[in-house]
């Protein structure tokens, strides 16, 4: 379990993380979402003990990471696929990490096999693609078989097969009862991966809930209606308190009234309806709505 309470990090006058509190429980994949510059990486680094918080605490299983002498058996992390030296082979990179934490050498071959890098084990990391480095970083995180895993944007640079692999891996790790915390700036990635979401913007907490709750929160339910008598139906729906917009091709988009109610109103007026579709907003849309005002590096004028 990861507990972050009142965590704040300042760099001079910039506040990267602002009084952030949340809990990440075991047995789930928890997504850590936010636009670029929202403070996700800084938070992960504070959890891992790489950055000292300006105030507040971040603990893993009740213990601050920086107070431990060895880390790999408690927390595995992939923070940045670049955090390795290009001059070493993948095997040697994992070998010294394993040795530093008294992890048996057999684990090195095991995790290399697990991420599909056995054939590349004795190649220099400098010749690796981003996707291969990403896999090696994941192998390093798995090395100590830890109960808690942190992944910062683990899907970056992966091919479709790699994306599927990582999604499957994250789910499996959670099913085994581990705490899995995965950051991303892409909602679509989390939609298929995470059970729960922690959403941040400009270093502050915006949401902490299940994916289903999150989808429901931001989305404006709407119903698309096609009819041969739009005029009558629009008048009737408006009288019922619905907001209706009409597209040039005659498609009506109705909000604030459910599809069943629309069907009943239409039936009562004797209006023929050809099409009646409920549209729920996507997670992407909910995410954009929630973080829209907190985007650090917005394009154009409106942010």
């Amino acid at each position: 379990m990861i507990e972050v309470s009142n965590l704040t990090k300042r760099y001079g006058r910039t506040i990267a993380v602002n009084d952030l509190s949340f809990i990440v429980r075991s047995g789930h994949v928890t997504g850590f979402l936010g636009p670029n510059g929202a403070g996700k990486s800084t938070t992960l680094r504070m959890i891992l003990g790489l950055h000292a918080p300006s105030s507040g605490t971040a603990t893993v299983d009740g213990c601050e990471c920086r107070s431990r002498r060895r880390g790999l058996r408690r927390v595995g992390a992939l923070l940045d696929a670049g955090d390795m030296h290009g001059g070493r082979t993948a095997h040697n990179h994992l070998r010294f990490l394993a040795r530093s934490n008294a992890i048996p050498r057999s684990r090195v071959d095991h995790v290399l096999r697990e991420v599909g890098l056995t054939a590349a084990a004795n190649r220099r990391i400098g010749d690796f693609s981003l996707g291969m480095r990403q896999r090696l970083g994941i192998a390093a995180a798995l090395l100590g078989d830890p109960p808690t895993l942190l992944f910062d944007e683990p899907l970056n640079g992966l091919d479709p097969e790699g994306v599927l692999f990582v999604r499957g891996l994250l789910k499996r790790l959670a099913t085994e009862g581990r705490t899995v915390f995965v950051s991303s700036h892409l909602m679509a990635e989390m939609e298929h991966t995470a059970d729960r979401l922690i959403v941040v913007g400009r270093g502050a907490l915006l949401a902490d809930e299940t994916v289903a709750e999150f989808a429901a929160r931001g989305s404006r339910h709407s119903v698309e209606v096609r009819t041969d008598d739009p005029t009558t139906l629009v008048a009737a729906l408006t009288a019922e308190g619905a907001q209706v917009t009409q597209a040039p091709d005659g498609l009506l988009t109705v909000t604030a009234v459910e599809a069943v109610r629309i069907a009943k109103i239409a039936a009562a007026r004797g209006v023929l309806v050809h099409e009646l579709t409920t549209r729920t907003g996507s997670l992407e849309q909910a995410f954009m709505e929630l973080t829209g005002s907190s985007v650090e590096y917005a394009t154009g004028e409106g942010a």
């Binding site: 379990m1 949340f22 809990i23 990440v24 429980r25 075991s26 047995g27 789930h28 002498r69 060895r70 058996r73 408690r74 008294a102 078989d145 830890p146 109960p147 959670a174 099913t175 085994e176 009862g177 581990r178 059970d195 729960r196 907490l205 902490d208 809930e209 299940t210 289903a212 709750e213």
Partner: peptide, 23 residues
């Protein structure tokens, strides 16, 4: 606002790592 609102309970117990060798 913390995780008490789970709709999907943990599918397994918490993973307990084996004892660590001394550093």
């Amino acid at each position: 606002m913390s995780a008490q609102t789970n709709t999907r309970p943990a599918t397994a117990g918490t993973y307990e790592p084996p004892a660590e060798p001394s550093a």
